[in-house]
Amino acid sequence: MYSEEIKTVADTLNTVVAKEESSAGWIMHHILDSSTLELPFITVQLPHLSLFGFDISITKHVVFMWIAFALLITTFYFVSKSYKKSFLPKGLSNIMELLIVFVRDEIAKPTIGKGYEKFLPYLLTVFFFILVSNFLGLLPYGATATSNISVTATLAVISFFVIQAGGIMKNGAFGYFKGLIPGGVPAWLLPIMFVVEILGLFTKPFALAIRLFANMTAGHIVIMALLGLIFILHTYFVAPVSVAFALFIYLLEILVALIQAYIFTMLSSLFIGMAVHQDH
C-alpha cells in the first residue's frame, strides 16, 4: 500500500520533470540571483554593465543590497538627528538604540574588551546590514542578498581584513604572526603549528560565509518545497498542511534572520578580540 503510493508520487514527479524541464528549477529561481527584478504586475530587466572586461551587471541581489543601504541610511539619518534634538529620543530611535547598545554591550565589550570602540562602527554596520538584508528576503517580491554565497563570502573577507588589521595594529606585523603560535610548543612542531594556525586564519571567515549563506538559503528552500508540494501533487488536500508548515518555517526564519545577524557580528567580534589580545 505504502510503496504503491510512493510509486504514484515518483511517477507524478517524473512526469512533472519530464514535461517541463524549466519549471523544475522554480525553487532555484527564487533563491538564485537573476538579472530581472520581479515587481507586482511587471518584470524589470536590469542593465548589464561591464568594467575592464568584468561583468558587473546590476542583479536582483545588488538591487536588494541597495534597498538595504537606502533603508539604513534614511533610518539612521533620522535617528542621529533625533539625538541632536533631545537627550532622550523616543520611538524609532529608542529601538535602534536598543540594538546599538546590544551590539556594544553584549557583543563588542565582552569579546574585544579594551579598545573595542575602534571596531564598533564596523560591527554595527555589519550587524544592521545583514539584519536588514535578511528581513528584506522575507518580504513578498523580496530577495535575500545574504543567501548568495558571493555576498556572504565578500562580507566574510571584509571581516577577515578587519580581524587581521586589528591584530597587526595592536601587536605589530611581526608580533602578530609570532603570537599566532601559542607559547610552550616544542621547536620541531613549529613549522606544522605555523601552517595550522595560518589555515585557521582562513577557516574563520570561510565558516562565517558558509554559515550565513546556508542558514539564509535553507529556510527559503524549505518554504518553497512545502508550498511546492501543492503544485507537484496537484491536490488541495495537502494545502492546509503545507501552509501551516510553511508558516511555521517562516516564523522560524524571522528568528533565524535575527540570530544570523547576531552570530555573524558576534563571531567577527570574537575573532577580532582573539587577534587583538593574543595572550588569552
Binding site: G25, D33, D55, N148, S150, A153, T217
Partner: peptide, 17 residues
Amino acid sequence: GGESSGSLLDVNPGLIF
C-alpha cells in the same frame, strides 16, 4: 533541474564588486 541557469555555489564577480 535549474542547473542550467546557475547553481547555489556560483561565484559572481559583479556581485562581489
